[in-house]
């Protein structure tokens, strides 16, 4: 299971544009690397889609290829208007889906 870190800022006022940061542990095997013992290419296995939702609605998404570095880090913005729930989802090519939810509190 992938380890996930998500950082949503606190002390947010309505209208603020906040930066949400996240990190997930994943090898992002590019399919370009050779196994040093067998000389064969190691099959590609990457996270190819990332989505960010606020109260269930997607506000940012991203498609990734093998050129995204291992343990993908991504930081992106959101215009905060009210309190609610941020949910991040990573889709692995192997069908697995990893996600993380956290509150956004607008004071």
């Amino acid at each position: 299971m992938a380890k996930i870190r998500m950082k949503v800022p606190g002390n947010v006022k309505a209208g603020d544009i906040i930066t949400i940061k996240s990190l997930i542990s994943h090898r992002m095997e590019s399919g370009q690397r050779k196994d040093p013992d067998t000389g064969k290419l190691i099959p590609r296995q990457i996270i190819d889609k990332f989505t960010a939702k606020f109260d269930g609605e997607i506000f940012f998404e991203s498609d990734w290829q093998g050129s995204v570095a291992a343990n993908p880090f991504i930081a992106f913005t959101f215009k905060a208007e009210k309190s609610g729930e941020i949910e991040l989802t990573w889709h692995d090519e192997n069908g697995e889906v990893y996600s993380k939810k956290g509150p956004l509190t607008v004071g």
Partner: peptide
């Protein structure tokens, strides 16, 4: 593979701004 990443924004993004790490 030249295609590296696509970032899709919405009005709710507030800004078209992103950071990441690539190979």
């Amino acid at each position: 593979v030249p295609m590296t990443a696509s970032y899709r924004f919405t009005v709710q993004s507030g800004r078209a701004e992103v950071s990441s790490r690539i190979r």
